[in-house]
């Protein structure tokens, strides 16, 4: 059977749809890494270059994950060369393997639940979450704005994230309170 190549616009659509899952794979394999956006951009470039090797109708996520996995491994190789603490290859393989089993709607469902859980947070907690994750503000400047320390903010964030994780897992009802 002849392989069918995707049109450029369809390829871009697929690439767009998979940005959050790919970012999730990177984050899982490189937790705390401040270069996540750079790695993602690098992966996008490679996916773009290799787009002719993707066959229409096959599993785009598996194809993109395979390439992403290699790029993150390369990142850790560089970190090791720089003498930095790194995750073991065995651990990285375990994570990549687990991630490959995520269903297509998995993150979408989770995002819906998370949105609801976020709306149950107190306003100050929402502001703190925004300060930590928005690229438009740093946690340091937010801490200074509200007259606190980054350390205190991190402790509060940890509590909030645990609440959110628990809330998302409980599949709570809209009228539940998040405590």
């Amino acid at each position: 059977m002849a392989t069918q190549q995707l049109s450029t616009s369809d390829f871009i659509r697929l690439l767009t749809e998979h940005q959050i899952p790919i970012r999730g794979l990177i984050l899982s394999m490189a937790p705390g890494c401040q270069d996540v956006n750079d790695i993602l951009q690098d992966i996008n470039v490679v996916l773009w270059e290799k787009k002719n090797s993707y066959t229409q109708g096959t599993n785009f996520k598996a194809w993109a994950y395979a390439i992403s996995r290699i790029k993150v491994m390369q990142y850790w190789d560089q970190q090791r060369k720089l003498g930095k603490i790194s995750l073991s290859n065995e651990f990285l393989e375990t994570i990549a393997e687990a991630r490959s089993k995520d269903t297509p709607s998995y993150l979408e469902d989770k995002l819906q639940k998370l949105n609801h859980c976020l709306s149950l947070l107190k306003e100050k907690e929402q502001q703190l979450v925004h300060a930590r994750y928005s690229e438009s503000i740093t946690l340091e400047s937010y801490a200074s704005q509200v007259g606190s320390t980054t350390g205190t903010m991190k402790v509060n964030l940890y509590r909030i994230k645990k609440k959110l994780k628990s809330c998302v897992e409980k599949k709570i009802t809209p009228n539940s309170n998040l405590s």
Partner: peptide, 9 residues
């Protein structure tokens, strides 16, 4: 949670 919070913000 890390990934989706970044996405939402």
């Amino acid at each position: 949670i890390e990934n989706l919070l970044h996405h939402q913000c």
